[in-house]
Amino acid sequence: MEYITVQEAAEKWDLSDRTVQHFCKQGRIPGARKFGKSWAIPAAAERPLDPRLGSGASPEAEEPFTGLTLMPLMNTPFPPGQCLAAVEAMAEGAEKEIARAEYHYFSGPPDRAAQEAELWLTSDNLGARLSACLIYAYANLSLGRIPQARFALTDLENSVRVIGKTVPRIRAAAGFTAAAGAVLLHLPLPDGLPPTEEFLPLLPPGLRAFALYIYAHYLYLQGNYGASAGMVEATLAMGAARYPIPAIYLHLVAVMDYMSLRQTDQARTHLLAAWTLARPDDLIEGLGEHHGLLGGMLEAVIKPNWPEDFRRIIDITYRFSAGWRKVHNPTTGHDVADDLTTTEFAASMLAARGWTNQEIADHMGISPNTVKHHLSEAMKKLGAENRKELKKHMLQ
């Protein structure tokens, strides 16, 4: 019989040396023989199925996502105001624990979300582990713990490469979380990410809705605002509103699209729809994350009517955007402004898109002189001489 080394098997199966040795120790590679501190592996041996994929001889035959605890709260329909009740109704175990971490992330206390997610970063349940990485990465951005955030984002990116051409539902789970980790931070897509049309049909309805939000956000970043808005409208029309967390994010990207298209009435409608879903359960994290892209709509709609909630959303904006820039700017080389107030940033975003001072004033409910003051302060802080230079420091 011909044998290969652990290193050769690792390269052949696209695994780490350590993982291959672990499989050998577990007796999961038939014919593997120990010699010294290493192993000899039959050259014809097939890559063992990762135990995190679940048991059984034919995992490909299982229903998509059976046994995978992937972002369970995101994938749960519940009436507004019943989010926490939906979590508590889940069976004890990975599903409930990950859902609780999701709830604490989307409702704003990132420290609790990070603590709860950290417990599952090395779980044998692949869905729980990928979910934990996604939650842990974003929660640590808001906490200013950039090394921890980078660690989790790297793990998500590597999951696509390590999982490779394995069981389709597993590849879909890795593709979903890796895309979420990259697109929402405006980072390059990971190498090896499966095409959207490959993994999207395998996702359950709630996650499919969020995946379409990710795709719509990606189209927005490409400047394809009409297609992005159309995707959002179609996704919501097909029942995504039953899943509040994906629906909130879909409405927010629609606000971004319609503000870019200068269709402020449609943008306002979608912001109020997002707010109607978010407010009863305090799911305000998404509004804070998207502030810089919403074109002053929070200032125009939420601030006058819900001033206390607006202050809490802005607190989220400051802490999240500070961490976001520490990952985004070095990776992309795009020097997004980091020392503006949220009002200065909102006014500057609109100015960079060609809005006049009067238009900005009418939209944000302030005077043209106040707009002029905010823009002057922003340009002074950024060393910009005109609106063209100001645009270089704005989100795209």
Rank of each mutant, 00 (worst) to 15 (best):
E95Q: 14
G93C: 07
R169L: 12
F35I: 10
D111C: 02
T356M: 02
S228V: 02
Y218H: 10
R150S: 06
A237E: 05
E102L: 02
T166S: 14
V162W: 11
D309W: 13
R387S: 13
V87N: 12
G175R: 05
Q222P: 01
L390D: 08
T317W: 08
G296Y: 03
I302R: 05
L70W: 04
A274L: 03
E97P: 00
E299D: 13
C24D: 04
I284W: 11
R171P: 11
R325F: 10
S55E: 15
A180N: 14
E289K: 13
I366K: 07
A227N: 05
R47V: 00
P59S: 08
I135A: 10
R262L: 04
A247Q: 06
A178N: 05
H290C: 13
A45Y: 05
N224P: 04
L156R: 00
H373R: 15
I284L: 14
E63F: 15
G164W: 00
F320Y: 15
R47H: 09
V232H: 13
M256C: 12
A89D: 12
I360V: 10
A86Y: 10
T356G: 01
V327S: 02
V87C: 07
C83Q: 12
A209Y: 12
A128H: 06
E88T: 08
M90I: 01
G67E: 01
L236H: 04
Q266V: 08
I302K: 05
V255C: 12
E116R: 01
P80E: 11
L73Q: 09
R129G: 06
W355H: 01
G164C: 01
M259G: 10
L207P: 03
T317Y: 11
A351I: 14
A216I: 03
R312I: 08
V183N: 03
G354A: 08
L185S: 13
